[in-house]
Design a protein around this nucleic acid. Structure first.
Length: 210
DNA sequence: TGCCAGGCCGGGT
DNA sequence: ACCCGGCATGGC
């Protein structure tokens, strides 16, 4: 798996992900970007920023309809408002609204907690763990699955956990490596591995299978 | 104009 | 254990 990483890195260069100013903004973005183009998420985040609502305490004090209005451009705004509320309820109750305190809890316990929240699945949980809290969990998204399949590295029927283990069992457990690797897969995916794009004919990264 | 985007959930087989 | 429809907006 390191071979693919270096191919991507030398082609695209380091990505320095996730694009956000604070850990909490990463968490918000992780929920808002569910099945949604990032450009739409940016508009919603901008609204929250202007409302000074990129803070767990502020969001928990917001009326849910107010919150819906702010995040509307990100799509699915009703379900996502409820999901953000569920997240901040957890952060408020468990850590008094302090993200720094949250980061002190062991990764596996946080993952279990996050997965119990309504609207936080494996990818969202791992994105929060890796990019907001610096915990070494590999993020598997639609691009990751598609690229690995088209490179012949998986069959396509593997579960999220199967694919995550493929990375985490064979790579050094390094947070910066995990961050860059996932960011590079997204960069490749956005340009050359979109859903209807039948193959990587113009893919700039040729991967030797086996 | 229709198709798609950095998912997740609930209900049905 | 899968498979599907619903959830919504903005860009190409």
């Amino acid at each position: 798996m390191l071979y693919l990483f270096y191919r991507l890195l030398s082609h695209f260069g380091p990505q320095f992900w996730w694009p956000a100013k604070t850990p909490f903004e990463v968490m918000v973005g992780a929920i808002l970007t569910q099945n949604t183009a990032w450009s739409n998420v940016e508009k919603a985040v901008k609204h929250l920023e202007e409302a000074e609502a990129l803070d767990p305490k502020v969001i928990s004090s917001l009326d849910v309809f107010q919150l819906e209005r702010l995040i509307r451009p990100s799509g699915f705004f009703r379900v996502k408002a409820a999901r953000l509320k569920a997240l901040v309820v957890y952060i408020m109750k468990e850590f008094k609204g302090d993200v720094e305190t949250m980061g002190l809890k062991p990764g596996w316990e946080l993952r279990r907690d996050l997965l119990s929240l309504h609207g936080v699945g494996e990818e969202t949980a791992d994105s929060i763990l890796l990019y907001a809290l610096g915990k070494p969990f590999f993020v598997v998204d639609a691009y990751t699955k598609r690229i690995l399949k088209r490179c012949g590295l998986i069959r396509g029927s593997e579960s999220y956990g199967d694919i995550q283990r493929l990375f985490m069992d064979t790579l050094p457990g390094d947070v910066e490596l995990f961050k860059e690797y996932h960011a590079l897969l997204v960069e490749l995916g956005k340009g050359y591995c979109r859903a209807r794009d039948p193959q990587c004919g113009t893919c700039p990264v040729k991967v030797e299978v086996e």
